[in-house]
């Protein structure tokens, strides 16, 4: 055991951005310290491809676009995003590390934002690894690259919105399985509100405005509108607002539940 040093006492002050970066880096690296990253990437890439080719009829349609690929992303995310988000807070609470990070010089918002961005960066890495689809379709025909880019953006935004929901739900429980199920159900409900079968059912008796109102709360409506290649500010705003709202709820949730 060495003697005390003459170095200055106490920690140094960090800016909010620097604090978020510290949280982000630890969290992002943690995905690759467990088999989670490998398992997630393999399953995501395999299923994204399988759906596009087998169910979406990628070749049979004889069209040089990625619609069959993108149209299944919401359903893929319903059970893959919870697998990423379930551990965000539930794991911290189970291992007790929440007490450690919340007594380090971080604010609750630094932790919430840093963790969320790390999870989002991870799903964005997974999404970007589907680039061979883009190359394939470019090689086979002449796709509209603008449309494909916007569809990728939409897919990333959708994953981000689901992750924000999942991170919030993860903060409510110590149990990762519960966090997973809650998130999957919540994401499913977010999609279902815009699903044609549901809207048709309501259209029978509800006024037109109510049907449109319901559809506009659905992530599916906004995703499909962007998937067509049009950046409508309202669609982007929808995803940004969902993320912001659930991140704010997340801050309250960890303060409320941290010591349970």
């Amino acid at each position: 055991m060495s003697t005390t040093s003459a170095q200055p006492r106490s920690a140094l002050a960090l800016s909010a951005l620097a604090r978020i970066t510290v949280v982000f880096r630890r969290e992002f690296r943690s995905y690759f310290q467990t088999p989670l990253a490998a398992v997630f990437l393999v399953i995501f890439l395999f299923l994204a491809g399988l759906f596009a080719f087998n169910i979406g009829g990628f070749y049979e349609r004889n069209q040089a676009d990625l619609r069959p690929f993108f149209q299944f992303h919401p359903w893929l995310y319903v059970f893959l995003v919870p697998a990423v988000s379930m551990r965000l807070w539930a794991e911290e609470r189970r291992t007790g590390t929440i007490e450690l990070i919340m007594t380090l010089p971080f604010g609750a918002a630094d932790l919430v934002i840093g963790k969320f961005l790390a999870a989002w960066a991870f799903t964005t890495v997974a999404l970007s690894l589907t680039f061979p689809m883009w190359i394939t379709v470019s090689w086979l025909g002449n796709p509209d690259h603008g449309t494909i880019f916007v569809a990728y953006l939409a897919s990333a935004l959708l994953a981000g919105a689901f992750l924000a929901v999942g991170a919030f739900l993860s903060a409510l429980t110590k149990n990762q399985v519960i966090a997973f199920v809650l998130c999957a159900v919540a994401c499913f409900v977010l999609l279902l509100a815009g699903f044609p079968a549901v809207l048709d059912f309501i259209r029978g008796w509800a006024p037109r405005g109510a049907v449109e109102g319901l559809a506009s709360t659905s992530a599916l409506t906004h995703y499909e509108s962007m998937m067509r290649g049009v950046i409508d500010l309202r669609d982007v705003l929808y995803f940004v607002l969902v993320m912001a709202a659930f991140l704010v709820l997340n801050v309250f949730a960890i303060d409320w539940k941290k010591s349970d």
Partner: peptide
């Protein structure tokens, strides 16, 4: 602060964990 039960991230090595703490401390 040493919290009750001395919690730390299970997958991190001692060195990695302390490097994270150092970064958190600025």
């Amino acid at each position: 602060y040493l919290p009750e039960g001395a919690p730390a991230y299970p997958d991190m090595t001692v060195e990695e964990f302390l490097a994270f703490i150092a970064a958190a401390r600025g």
